[in-house]
């Protein structure tokens, strides 16, 4: 806007500018409300045929209102009629107004791009999470059935010779399955719950390896509420039996231990047996699959902040060591026990 005076009072100048930008604000808001989505999507053709005329029309409209608001501008000029003043202002201001319009247009487009960028990013994140989840459940699914079939086979064998034993094992299997189902898809559980599962699993293994294996579990009570990946230990213990303890006929030892070390939870599963077979990678259905699963899950949960090692620490003694960040469960779960006075 040109006020055509070098001695223009500051309040009037501010008022004139204020009204002009206020008008543009209102117009932009209206445009956004009415055609925001179309403006964001508009192609070249649409911009040339519709937005360009719209920019000129809008600029004229804004100027018309502005001129209406300031009847005694320009200053220091003889009084002019409305149309005269409008013409006078437009000849100077139209280009500026059109530039303002296109700035607003650019802003709209930018916001549109940013929004769709965010949406895509969100979708990508969600997809990633779903994928990780699917991977975890897929990995877990690989663990369960083969344990299930082995147990069913044991029961099938027991039921011919020891009905009570078979009965007991069925109940234990039922309990194990019930617990597995109950935990559903929770990726992390309390160490105590994982250990309960392991205890049940060990009790079943004890039935199969009567008196051949001495089991020991040492977990500090202060670690009971640490979160660990669900079913992370079972495959390790299963391996200890499959590749170590099952190869010897007496005096086996299985020691499971959990302790804290510098902000990490360290698991150690130690077993006697035949030591590490040098060419273990070539065995089919052996350590390869189960342990690759564990590594995959640890990577998914903790990135590089974990470690997993298998080593022969003595003659015919193998130790698996696993370290994960110490993370305490915060949730106060539902009441575990109910009391009744009768």
């Amino acid at each position: 806007m040109r006020l055509w005076s070098y001695r223009i009072p500051i309040p009037l100048l501010l008022e004139a500018w204020g009204v002009q930008y206020f008008l543009w604000g209102v117009v932009s808001w209206l445009l956004w409300q009415l055609w925001g989505a179309q403006i964001q999507r508009a192609g070249i053709a649409c911009i040339l045929t519709r937005v360009l005329p719209l920019s000129i029309l809008t600029s004229i409209l804004v100027e018309m209102i502005w001129v209406l608001c300031f009847p005694n501008l320009p200053l220091n000029r003889p009084h002019m009629a409305y149309w005269h003043r409008l013409w006078f202002e437009l000849s100077e201001e139209l280009f500026d107004n059109v530039v303002i319009f296109w700035c607003a247009f650019g802003l709209f487009r930018g916001m549109g791009y940013y929004q769709s960028f965010r949406e895509k990013e969100d979708a990508a994140n969600q997809l990633e999470a779903q994928l990780a989840h699917a991977q975890i459940s897929a990995l877990r699914m690989q663990l369960n059935p083969h344990f299930l079939f082995n147990t069913m086979n044991s029961i099938s064998s027991l039921m011919r010779t020891d009905v009570e034993g078979a009965d007991m094992m069925l109940e234990q299997l039922g309990s194990l399955l019930r617990i597995t189902l109950e935990r559903g898809d929770a990726p992390l559980i309390r160490l105590r719950d994982e250990m309960e599962f392991i205890e049940m699993y060990l009790a079943m293994q004890d039935k199969r390896f009567v008196g051949r294996v001495q089991q020991s579990i040492k977990v500090d009570a202060s670690l009971y509420d640490v979160l660990v990946p669900t079913m992370i230990l079972q495959p390790i213990v299963e391996n200890a039996y499959a590749h170590g303890l099952s190869k010897i006929d007496k005096g086996g030892l299985l020691a499971i231990e959990a302790h804290e070390d510098r902000g990490h939870l360290i698991f150690s599963v130690l077993n006697t047996g035949i030591g590490l077979v040098p060419d273990s990678s070539k065995r089919t259905g052996g350590q390869g699959v189960g342990l690759a699963n564990i590594k995959g899950r640890l990577q998914l949960h903790y990135g590089d902040d974990h470690s997993f090692q298998i080593s022969e620490i003595g003659r015919n003694t193998v130790q698996v060591t696993l370290s994960i960040p110490l993370q305490m469960s915060q949730s106060e779960e539902e009441e575990t026990a109910r009391f009744v006075a009768q």
């Binding site: 309990s175 109950e182 049940m200 575990t336 026990a337 109910r338 009391f339 009744v340 009768q342």
Partner: peptide
Amino acid sequence: GQSNGKSKHESPYTTRIVFKSRGR
């Protein structure tokens, strides 16, 4: 509590605890 009425000296203390342990 199914029997008729309340016993004479009802104890305020727990007589049974219900909980889950090892899937049972």
